[in-house]
């Protein structure tokens, strides 16, 4: 009986998310580590929101003008998942190589961080989980910043 309900619920969930077009058919090897973000699906939703925000951000929007939103959100989700211990593997370019020569300064880096904070707020991510992720991302500034 219990099993039947579980299967029915799972099927219903898939059906619903499928209707929204918001299922990404991927789970992190260690979903528990990113449970505070709603798992891998949650990270994807946060990062799609983030990419929309950075594209609209007057300070950094031009840097993302031609960026494919889904591709970037996927790369970011893989990266965040890896950093948070979710066991994913980031397959994008090396951070330093990817940002070299773009003239990125601390205020650009922070503008993205603030958009991420807004996206996490919108997704209802707790303060402690938000600080955990921001703490992992902070050292990347050294590679991204043009000195």
């Amino acid at each position: 009986m219990k099993k039947t309900i579980l299967i029915a619920l799972t099927a219903a969930t898939f059906a619903l998310t499928g209707l929204n077009g918001a299922t990404f058919a991927k789970a992190a090897p260690n979903e528990a580590a990113i449970a505070g973000f709603g798992g891998y699906d949650g990270l994807m939703k946060i990062n799609l929101d983030l990419v929309a925000r950075v594209k609209a951000n007057p300070l950094i929007g031009s840097l993302f003008k031609d960026t494919d939103a889904t591709r970037l959100a996927t790369l970011l989700s893989d990266q965040f998942c890896e950093l948070l211990g979710g066991g994913c593997t980031y397959t994008g370019n090396d951070m330093k190589a990817a940002h070299q020569g773009m003239g990125i300064k601390t205020h650009h880096f922070n503008a993205l961080a603030e958009d991420l904070q807004r996206a996490m707020d919108a997704a209802g991510v707790s303060q402690s989980e938000q600080f955990r992720l921001i703490g992992k991302l902070a050292p990347m500034k050294r590679d991204i910043n043009d000195q």
Binding site: K105, T106, H107, N110, A111, E114
Partner: peptide
């Protein structure tokens, strides 16, 4: 021209 208030809150 470099913007302002770029630090985090």
């Amino acid at each position: 021209s470099q913007g302002y208030s770029g630090k985090l809150l």
